[in-house]
Amino acid sequence: MSTVSQFALLFIGGALINNILLTRFIGLCPFFGVSGNMETSMGMSFAVVFVMMMASTATWVVWEFVLAPLGVGEFLYIPAFILIIASLVQFVEMYLRKASPVLYRAMGIFLPLITTNCAVLATATESAKPGFFKLNIAVGASLSLGQALIYTLGVSVGFGFALITFAALRERLELAGVPRLFKGTPIAFITAGLLSLAYVGFSGWFGL
């Protein structure tokens, strides 16, 4: 398989076929937490793209040059990755506050939230130590740094796309007449179910 088509496959596979929110159920807390408002979900989406890219780079480097050569990856990867992500987010937050107040105001409040977002840990783990999402069918046992970054970009764009679509649906839902017991979250779940029904259509593309 040529490199370009492999990259395209990784991107589409991450964004649509294995959409992390609607087909993998990863990162649902912000999906239901911040989707009540269009503006916050936009901010959240950009923050997620930003943090995921950095987290994947960091975990990939640490896995490739520290954990795997030392042979301790199998049992140290969970604490190592989560600590890397948590401290990375902390540094990014401090740096942004000092260097770019505009950017900080746009996504500052979301950064601490993202630390414990399972989507970031899942994507970073998958980039560094593939095998959980059956990606290896497409690319082989491990990803190069370029492949890992393209995959992460796909996943985070898919995350943002699903989040923004859902926020738009929920804003409209505010005006709808809903039975009393279903108001708020229950109807949001049912709406999410219908939205994810659309993503069933993507499953099976390219054998992913």
């Binding site: 779940f189 049912i190 029904l197 069933v200």
Partner: peptide, 22 residues
Amino acid sequence: SLLLLFPGAFLVFGFMIAGSRW
């Protein structure tokens, strides 16, 4: 098979929240 696919989880869970509220 809809129930086993991912939309099924959202749908059933939505009804379960309503039920537990009741």
